[in-house]
Design a protein around this nucleic acid. Structure first.
Length: 301
RNA sequence: GCCGCGGUAGCUCAUGUAGUAGAGCGCAGCUCUGAAAAAGCUGAGGUAGCCAGUGCAAGUCUGGCCCGCGGCA
């Protein structure tokens, strides 16, 4: 049974922000009759384009892209939703006999798909969350401990967000089930990484380009469309910085500096996921990627 | 030149009455069960400007010197 599943091949292109995943994926998809599924937790939102480095039509080179603009920034989106949509998109591509490429830099999203995490079937309960958020981490920890001592023992007790989610689950299911993995695809993981200094340069160049292209206007538009500053700030990184700048909480230069810092730190956080994954084939050049993929795919392709 | 204020971690600064120093940011590393570009954790960094004095004990008191900032002339 699991043998059959393993025939479904998925090529994953990952790496830190600004490392060049998009450009590479287009080239590979064109050569290998592929279609692209984005694995990016912010590119899913409509109206967040410049600051998410979302690919534009012109750059797609006729390669179909999925999982872009699938959610309104006004509503809360989640990994579970993402996973469901991604599974659908990938299976759709496979059904057309094309090769699916999962491309992105959101590790949580990537691994949810690659490893087939089975999430507890419980949507976020915003009402409950609002109530719980008023409590201290200590109180929350004690609540969880009563509901599910096992989960309490391993959870980060200072992390309110995770405590709340755990309680949310344990309250209904009695406990937080262990994370099950049910991989749907046979994955080839290809990683792009750059020396630290070089990546820093790339991040900077790209951010300055975004500013020229109207990134600030983009954030202003999000606000005008009805999003609260708080909500925009929660998109994180440079979205947070620009939101604060527009509220007058930060000077222009500060905003740039802080944004770059945030992006650099983000790239490090991404790498803490990727570094420990031995399955990743770290790339030296594009030719190597092609070779890896051709070896991976069933003969005849 | 005179008066005032200051010189403590890479940066900005805390450290009543003297008892060998802390925070935020930065840096390094990490965690990851429906917010994940989120949220959280851990760690490394200081002979307290320099020299002398008083004290059992000085970042903390006294004197001198050096450096920075503000004011007066």
């Amino acid at each position: 049974m699991s043998k059959k599943i393993s025939f479904k091949k998925l090529i994953v292109i990952l790496g830190p922000t600004a490392s060049g995943k998009t450009a590479l994926s287009i080239k590979l998809a064109q050569k290998l009759e592929g279609e692209i599924v984005s694995a990016d937790s912010r590119q899913v939102y409509q109206g967040m384009n410049i600051g998410t480095a979302k690919i534009i039509k012109k750059e797609m080179g006729r390669i179909p892209h999925y999982l872009l603009d699938v959610a309104s920034p006004k509503r809360r989106f989640s990994v579970a939703q993402y996973q469901k949509l991604a599974f659908g998109a990938i299976n759709g591509i496979l059904a057309k006999n094309k090769i699916p490429f999962l491309v992105g830099g959101s590790p949580f999203y990537i691994y949810a798909v690659v490893e087939g995490w089975v999430f507890p079937q419980l949507k976020a309960d915003q009402k409950l969350r609002k109530i719980l958020e008023k409590k201290s981490v200590k109180e929350l920890f004690n609540i969880l401990k009563k509901l599910d001592p096992k989960r309490a023992a391993q959870i980060e007790r200072e992390n309110k967000r995770r405590l709340v989610r755990a309680i949310e689950i344990a309250k209904i299911l009695g406990k937080v089930p262990l994370l099950k993995k049910s991989p749907q695809f046979d994955c080839l993981l290809i990683g792009i990484r750059k020396p630290k200094g070089e990546l820093k340069e790339l991040i900077k160049k790209r951010f300055l380009k975004w500013l020229k292209r109207g990134f600030i206007e983009e954030v202003r538009k999000l606000k005008k469309s009805g999003l609260s500053w708080k909500k925009i700030e929660e998109f994180g990184l440079h979205y947070r910085c620009v939101a604060q700048y527009l509220q007058g909480k930060m000077k222009y230069n500060e905003m740039i500096e802080k944004s770059l810092k945030e992006l650099e730190n983000f790239s490090k956080r991404q790498m803490t996921w990727f570094k420990k994954d031995k399955r990743i084939n770290w790339l030296k050049n594009q030719r190597e990627a092609e070779k890896l993929i051709r070896e991976f795919l069933p003969t005849g392709r």
